[in-house]
């Protein structure tokens, strides 16, 4: 009995710790956004509570003196374009590697995944040459072109495991029931792969929203910046950090991603779990 209570206590203790751990950045963002700078910078005040009355000044600055909504819009634009490209390339690639390439599929799949491991800090140098040759500097198109270099390999690899987990019998049954290979793919396999595709969409979008190096290297105009570089380059002026507005921008940008994860969490987890375990 005592042991049971102890175990339960331990479980909920650990749970509480992790909830606090993951909620605390949001809390700090939230409280910093609405604190007066005077309150924020006084080392004698408790950083976790309001010592003075909250203020909307930082929010006003964020919306009036930066192109915050433009950053959000640019991020969404690039994100959606990259997600579409990624899904269009990764789904057929993953399917053919998982089902049609035989034993080569596995090694090619690993090869594709390895390209994902080359860090952008190395790749941005040659890629900026390519972007320059194509005349895409300082354009959102450079990001739309470059981001699939890391989203497609990762998502292909994720979807490969997903397609492998769909029994071969079901595909063959569709062939016997009157479908061509393409027909079987669209009518049966694609609907079954929807959880995997949703995971891929969410993943690709988050990767894009997080990306920093390429955006910093390829984009100079304020009006074309994405959220990640927009906030950090516009709200850190010289050695002055506009903490309140920075945190406000970060908070607003992370809410849609948080919502995305919350609503599709089950499917993302099953997608990742399928990707993780080989049959």
């Amino acid at each position: 009995m005592l042991k049971k209570i102890f175990l339960k206590g331990g479980f909920y203790g650990a749970l509480a710790f992790f909830i606090l751990f993951s909620a605390s950045p949001f809390y700090i963002m939230l409280i910093t956004t609405f604190k007066k700078s005077h309150d924020l910078f006084n080392p004698n005040n408790n950083p976790f509570f309001f010592a003075e009355l909250p203020t909307l000044d930082h929010m006003k600055l964020l919306f009036s003196q930066t192109l915050f909504t433009t950053f959000l819009w640019n991020t969404l634009l690039v994100g959606v374009a990259v997600v579409v490209i990624t899904v269009l390339l990764a789904v057929p690639a993953a399917f053919s590697l998982a089902r049609m390439a035989g034993k080569w599929g596995e090694s090619i799949g690993i090869g594709i995944f390895l390209t994902y491991l080359v860090p952008p800090t190395l790749l941005f140098i040659p890629l900026s040459r390519i972007v320059a040759i194509l005349g895409l500097q300082n354009s959102l198109w450079s990001l739309i072109l470059v981001y699939p270099t890391f989203t497609v390999p990762f998502c292909t690899w994720l979807l490969m495991s997903f397609f492998k987990s769909i029994p071969k019998d079901i595909e063959e049954q569709a062939l016997i029931d009157g479908c061509s290979r393409m027909g079987a793919f669209f009518r049966i396999l694609l609907p079954l792969a929807v959880p995997g595709i949703i995971s891929v969409v969410v993943f690709a979008f988050t990767l894009v929203a997080n990306e920093y190096i390429y955006a910093l290297a390829f984009i100079q105009d304020s009006a074309k910046k994405t959220i990640g570089i927009g906030l950090t380059t516009e709200l850190v002026r010289g050695d002055v950090f506009y903490w309140g507005s920075l945190m406000g921008g970060a908070l607003l940008a992370s809410i849609p991603v948080a919502l995305l994860y919350t609503f599709f969490l089950d499917r993302i987890i099953s997608g990742l779990a399928m990707g993780a375990s080989k049959r």
């Binding site: 029994p167 019998d169 079901i170 063959e172 049954q173 062939l175 016997i176 029931d177 009157g178 479908c179």
Partner: peptide, 15 residues
Amino acid sequence: PPRERGIAMVFQSYA
């Protein structure tokens, strides 16, 4: 191809 053979199949797994 299978779809034009006029056959039907029941798999072990029922599929």
